[in-house]
Design a protein around this nucleic acid. Structure first.
Length: 991
DNA sequence: CTAGGGTTAG
């Protein structure tokens, strides 16, 4: 896509890429901002320039007229031209009017008072600015210029062309004004979105004792509708009733309905009921009113009544009804309307466009495509639809060629095109480059500050983690709407900038932009831990107070917020009470429980869920991550079988297959992980990463490296993630040299800039290998500040090599980063203890005690016959507790005879030796092993999982037990797998 | 001088 999109632009005359190079440098500078602002003003607003300076032709007679004697009287010739223009006007052929006028001009004949307005009108409709101005110029020295009809036509022409200042100028210079000229000026303002200006003009008109007629009323109602001026609109309604304008002029009737549909929808249907006579336009107004309010059923019912009452529907009816069918989800009716369209021959661009979008909504891309090809003249809107249809259907390459064709057809792309392509860029991994060129292009054509374009740019930048760029664009948007704030807030939350997101939410309230359910859903995602409980709850309060509609996703967000903020009961209550729980509600509660380590609740929920709704791939991946966390291999295998039944294979979704690979590897079964991996017809980088990480954590460094080489050989490019797994695999297997080579190769051959994690891996690798000083060098010279895990890696190695001095200095750095992590103190204490520095040990204990720090409770568990058995240190809650302790006592006695000596240094809390011995003898790992030996069938390995890193004493103990019982014990701790076989461990005591 | 209409966020 990256290259292709570039190519599209490069081949055409409009070349955003070229622009981007210039503007990427300049739009950050202040100079560009000024010129940008100018571009913006001239594009969106009518230019604020002097009327006369805008005249291209000097204020004199045109050259043709100068050479000819002026002929003011109606000749036979001029009568012929004038009547010809009138004829073309009747036929609504604007081009013919202008052509005729050109011929007239070259004969030196001016149109008469009656004809000139017709020509100006045609100029206005065709946006023929130059022709109109020239015409104005030509009549300046004639009597025509003081004719009220001509002046009115000029007002109309200028406002139609967006040159409101010029219109005002002509209007202000009029000596005599009638209702029609006032109307023209008012209508001009409304046409240029200057609604307030229109109302002010109306006030001026009333001062001049002129009465509003039906035309005035129609324009005023539109202005009131746009300004949500309900009161003034109602007064105008009253005026219509008093002056007999209601039920006598269909324009007025329809405008009233249109106004009420905007400001007070229920009144609109009352007005409609009261109409003496209806036409297709009044029906269409009502139908489209319902569509705009999202009441598609009502709109379709109204359409049916229209047919029953025998009204003829026109192409607009079709258009609106097609949209209603699409939104309501009624393909059958939509296709019937399509047949009507064909029958009546209404195949214009609008209709084709609506039909394309309808079919695409029903996932029928083919029909959309055929419709698109069925029409010969296509405007930019049609192309835009084609683009968004193909993107929506996932045809990325095709949409690029559509873009190419668009450029080949010389279609001038507009802001909607930009929005559509920007959305595509935002979703392509390499879309940032193209997104930036589109930004430059938007800037160039003065659309950067457009609300829609700005919103899309903000979204695109935020998704590429370019918060600064997103912020810059956001602040430049001229008129920010709810969507601008939604996009920006969710972008900030996505980039973990919670505080800024909250500030934006407050700003939005200050500016009285009412947050909708999506705003709240986005901001709630920021409040994901206990400290945000109050602010999260206040948002819930806001939702209730201000009546923000609670849809399924908002309810889900509220539920998640409460559970993340440790108020599970309220969260759960919201979930249970919500009537329209969808799959997303179930999936997200499930994943929230999993994230918050509420495994049992998650499992119960999953079983309840599958009895009610059909789980999706997302559900499976969620539950898999739960089984992975829990090392629940038997359940993982069951889920594998279930998934094969439900989705027939894993091939359909690679992320699903990859989740299975990870699950098997982390549940201790490399064999099954390999089986899944080898069965895949296609693999991606994640599959390979999962295998490399799997080998690494089991201490199979050679397999990890072989997999790495194989992957590179198959042409798959390793990512940063790959190197984290591969480097730590080397580290865990003591392959120092290979690891160093790999690190080098990452930079040299794969052009990957090492990040913090990679340096952490490097430090770990060197330090474990005994190269403590080299490791320290890395820490001191790495380009970014080391994080806690880097220092921890160094301290861990200091334990193996008994370097208390370095351990201490590393520790000081570590607690600066993590002052409240009790585990860090344990780490140092163990090193002091191992080296007999008892006073230091005591000192550390005191610090921990004074600070009130607590080590998280150690938990070990084991799966037996698909059931989980959890153990804490000294746990006696298990049903077979007596048997377990009996077995443990037996094991302890036996291994002591083999040479095992309990190592009391692993008890941090101060106590006498006897208590320490009791404590270390009932560690959760030991209890789990004892239970495993009495419950797991002989022969199969005993698989134990621990939430923290294994205790050193338990590690020794496990080695002896494996020798004593001739059983394989596989223990997964927080950092890796330990395979205990016949008295030794796969980690080679190297952990 | 005037009423209803297609393509635009995640």
């Amino acid at each position: 896509m990256g290259i292709a999109l570039t190519r599209v632009f490069v081949t055409r005359s409009v070349n955003p890429l070229k622009i981007s190079m210039l503007d990427e440098i300049s739009w950050h500078g202040s100079g560009a901002t000024r010129s940008g602002a100018h571009v913006f003003v001239s594009n969106i607003h009518p230019p604020n320039v002097n009327y006369f300076s805008n005249m291209e032709v000097p204020l004199s007679l045109s050259p043709a007229l100068q050479n000819l004697p002026f002929r003011p009287t109606q000749t036979h010739e001029s009568r012929h031209w004038n009547s010809l223009i009138k004829h073309h006007t009747k036929l609504k052929d604007d081009h013919a009017i202008l052509d005729t006028y050109t011929k007239m001009e070259s004969s030196g004949i001016l149109p008469d008072t009656a004809t000139l307005p017709l020509v100006l009108k045609a100029c206005g409709r065709l946006q023929a600015i130059d022709r109109g101005k020239k015409l104005h110029n030509a009549v300046l020295d004639t009597d025509l210029v003081s004719d009220i009809r001509v002046q009115t036509a000029l007002v109309d022409f200028y406002s139609k062309c967006g040159m409101l200042m010029n219109a005002h100028k002509v209007f202000d210079e009029m000596t005599d004004r009638d209702v029609v000229s006032w109307n023209a000026m008012i209508s001009g303002c409304v046409g240029c979105f200057e609604y307030l200006q229109a109302l002010i003009l109306f006030a001026r008109m009333q001062n001049g004792n002129l009465k509003a007629n039906s035309v005035t009323v129609v324009e005023l109602l539109r202005a009131c509708g746009e300004l949500f001026e309900l009161r003034l609109g109602k007064e105008i309604h009253g005026y219509c009733l008093r002056h007999g304008l209601f039920n006598s002029n269909p324009h007025v009737d329809t405008s009233l309905m249109g106004f009420y549909l905007k400001c007070a929808p229920s009144v609109a249907s009352l007005v409609f009921e009261m109409l003496d006579s209806r036409n297709s336009i009044s029906w269409n107004t009502m139908i489209s009113g319902y569509v705009n309010h999202g009441d598609y059923l009502k709109s379709l019912e109204l359409f049916i009544s229209m047919l029953i009452e025998g009204f003829e529907c026109d192409s607009v009816t079709m258009l609106v009804v097609i949209k209603a069918c699409a939104e309501y989800g009624n393909l059958e009716l939509g296709m019937q309307v399509h047949q009507l369209v064909i029958k009546f021959g209404y195949s214009n661009m609008h209709i084709i466009n609506a039909l394309m979008n309808m079919y695409n909504k029903f996932a029928d891309f083919r029909s959309s495509y055929e419709l698109f090809n069925s029409i010969l003249t296509k405007d930019v809107a049609l192309w835009n639809s084609m683009l968004s249809c193909s993107i929506e259907s996932g045809f990325i390459d095709e949409s690029v060629s559509i873009l190419t064709e668009m450029q080949l057809d010389d279609i001038q792309i507009n802001e909607r095109t930009l929005v559509i392509i920007l959305r595509l860029c935002a979703h392509l991994s390499n879309g940032l480059v193209n997104g930036k060129s589109l930004h430059a292009y938007a800037f160039k054509i003065g659309k950067e500050k457009n609300t829609y374009v700005g919103n899309s740019l903000v979204n695109m930048y935020a998704l590429f983690n370019r918060v600064e760029d997103a912020t810059r664009v956001f602040t430049k948007i001229k008129v920010s709407d709810v969507i601008s704030y939604n996009v920006f807030i969710s972008g900030l939350v996505y980039n973990k900038l919670k505080f800024q997101a909250w500030e934006m939410f407050i700003q939005m309230l200050d500016l009285e932009i009412k947050p909708n359910s999506q705003t709240v859903t986005s901001i709630l995602a920021a409040f994901d831990s206990g400290e945000f409980f109050n602010v999260g709850r206040s948002i819930h309060g806001y939702v209730m107070k201000c009546g923000v509609q609670i849809d399924a996703s908002l309810n889900t967000a509220l539920t998640e917020m409460y559970i993340n903020c440790e108020d599970e009961e309220t969260g759960r209550g919201l979930f249970e009470k919500y009537p329209d729980k969808d799959l997303i509600s179930w999936n997200s509660l499930l994943s929230t429980y999993i994230k918050n380590n509420q495994e049992e609740k998650a499992l119960i929920l999953f079983h309840r869920m599958i009895s009610r709704v059909k789980p999706t791939i997302v559900t499976i991946i969620n539950v898999l991550s739960l089984y992975t966390q829990l090392s629940n291999l038997p359940q993982g295998r069951c889920l594998h079988a279930y998934t094969l039944r439900r989705f027939s294979s894993l091939d359909r979704d690679l992320s699903l297959a990859n989740a299975f690979i990870t699950m098997y590897a982390r549940c201790g079964s490399l064999e099954y992980a390999e089986k899944v991996f080898n069965s895949l017809p296609e693999t991606d980088i994640v599959s390979w990463n999962a295998m490399i990480a799997g080998y690494g954590m089991h201490g199979c460094g050679d397999d990890a490296m072989m997999t790495f080489s194989k992957m590179v050989k198959e042409g798959i490019k390793p990512t940063q993630v790959t190197f984290v797994s591969a480097l730590s695999a080397c580290s865990h297997s003591g392959m120092i040299h290979k690891g160093l080579v790999l690190f080098h190769s990452m930079v040299q051959d794969f052009c990957i800039t090492p990040e913090r994690v990679h340096y952490a891996c490097l430090v770990d690798l060197l330090a474990r290998g005994g190269l403590l000083n080299e490791a320290k060098d890395v820490i001191e010279t790495m380009p970014m500040a080391p994080d806690a895990s880097t220092w921890r890696a160094l301290i861990g190695a200091c334990r193996i090599y008994s370097d208390t001095h370095m351990a201490k200095s590393a520790f000081e750095n570590l607690i600066e980063l993590e002052p409240t992590n009790a585990g860090n103190y344990v780490l140092l204490s163990n090193i002091y203890a191992a080296n007999g520095l008892w006073s230091e040990v005591k000192n550390l204990r005191l610090i921990v005690k004074n600070k009130g720090l607590k080590k998280p409770a150690g938990r070990s568990w084991i799966v037996n016959k698909s059931k989980l058995y959890f153990f804490a240190a000294g746990d006696k809650t298990h049903a077979q507790s007596d048997k377990i302790y009996k077995k443990l006592t037996f094991l302890l006695t036996s291994v002591k005879e083999m040479g095992y000596v309990p190592d009391l240094r692993w008890v941090l809390h101060d106590a006498d030796d006897e208590r320490k011995l009791a404590r270390v003898s009932s560690h959760s790992e030991k209890l789990a092993i004892a239970f495993g030996l009495i419950s797991v069938n002989g022969g199969s390995p005993i698989l134990i999982t621990k939430n923290l890193r294994i205790c050193g004493d338990c590690h020794e103990f496990s080695k002896y037990v494996s020798k004593l019982t001739k059983r394989i014990i596989i223990l997964r701790d927080a950092s890796r797998f330990h395979h205990f076989v016949d008295g030794s461990c796969s980690c080679k005591d190297y952990w």
